[in-house]
């Protein structure tokens, strides 16, 4: 075993441990702010795994988008909805959690079994290594051109929609008749899905 492979092995083990333990923390910790920061740690460790796989471009994209954008967005959301809530106790919560943990463990066992028993077609063709970034660019403008263009539509639409939903002002009147608009109250007689606005 050379020093290089040993280093790679140690890096892999440390990063995997960070990913798994961090993810457990994200779902188990009671304080949501800690969860959000741990999530950032998981994202960074996943980027480290990508570096081990020789994919520097995707690793950078992962850091920029996941850690820089999504995680920050989640932190903002936590701060915007930061009212301390005393959650109502639910009966059988522990049982429910245990049962779902059992189900998830079963799923994990299934996935592990499939991963271990499948004869993967290894080794594949030699890796491109440093050329990966250039190759991704070639893909984006040749055989993945259509998804690339559609992704731009998706992002434009998501941006507009998110702004429309998150901004405060709504039209107060019906543009055509000038009557007071009754948004959401068109079907007044409907049984509401929710109880009235909480105090």
């Amino acid at each position: 075993m050379t020093i290089a492979t040993t280093t790679e092995l140690i890096c892999f083990l440390v990063l995997s441990a960070v990913v798994v333990i961090g993810a457990l923390g994200v779902v188990l910790l009671s304080n949501i702010v800690y969860s959000a920061f741990l999530l950032g740690g998981v994202f960074t460790a996943v980027a480290g795994l990508y570096l081990l796989l020789n994919a520097s471009f995707v690793a950078m994209a992962q850091i920029l988008v996941y850690v820089g954008a999504i995680n920050v967005l989640i932190l903002f959301a936590i701060m915007l909805v930061n009212k301390r809530e005393d959650l109502k106790a639910i009966a059988n919560l522990t049982t429910r959690r245990a049962v779902s943990a059992g189900v998830c463990a079963g799923l994990l066992a299934l996935l592990v079994r499939v991963v271990v028993t499948t004869p993967w077609s290894l080794p594949g063709p030699p890796a491109v290594g440093e050329e990966a970034t250039a190759r991704i660019g070639e893909h984006l403008f040749t055989d993945y051109l259509l998804p690339f263009e559609v992704a731009s539509v998706l992002l434009l639409m998501a941006m507009i929609g998110a702004i429309v939903l998150a901004r405060r002002d709504v039209l107060a009147t019906d543009v055509v008749t000038g009557e007071v608009a009754d948004q959401g109250l068109i079907e007044k007689a409907r049984t509401p899905l929710l109880m009235n606005r909480a105090e």
Binding site: Y66, I74, P125, P126, V128, H139, Y144, A162, L165
Partner: peptide, 30 residues
Amino acid sequence: SFVDGDLIRGQVFAVFVITVAAAEAAVGLA
């Protein structure tokens, strides 16, 4: 990197997944 090392289509797929995840997170939080 193990099965498709020369064409790395998986990396491109991952870039698309990252893009969509960002859009989905923004919409979800809105």
